[in-house]
């Protein structure tokens, strides 16, 4: 048996589903961010697996940019959590509903 890109697609589908369930179930915004990271990593796995399967370096370039965007997202998201926590105790998603417009 040889490794094919389909294995990568199946693994990333599993990882993405686990991440989405975690995002929906957990109430702690930090853990929700971690689940978003899981989903982003699932997409990165798809990109890298297909870049290998098609022998096209473009997929790896996309992963490179996804990582940068993920870093920026985490920085801003954690700053929001810190700003909320300075004013209000409790760190569940329900406490953050005050952000609504």
């Amino acid at each position: 048996m040889e490794l094919t890109p389909t294995y990568y697609l199946i693994l990333s589908a599993l990882l993405f589903s686990i991440g989405s369930v975690g995002l929906l179930v957990r109430r702690n915004p930090l853990v929700m961010f971690m689940c978003v990271e899981l989903m982003l990593n699932a997409v990165n796995l798809t990109f890298v697996g297909l870049a290998w399967g098609l022998n096209d370096i473009g997929g790896q370039v996309a992963v490179f940019f996804v990582m940068v965007v993920a870093a920026a997202e985490v920085v801003v998201g954690l700053a929001i959590v810190v700003a909320i926590m300075k004013r209000r105790d409790g760190a569940t998603a329900d406490d953050l509903s005050v952000l609504r417009g």
Binding site: V68, V69, A71, A72, E73, V75, V76, L78, A79, I80, V82, A83
Partner: peptide, 13 residues
């Protein structure tokens, strides 16, 4: 984007 994110994080925190 990274520069904006860093400035935004500093402003918010």
């Amino acid at each position: 984007l990274l520069t904006v994110a860093v400035v935004g994080a500093v402003v918010m925190a």
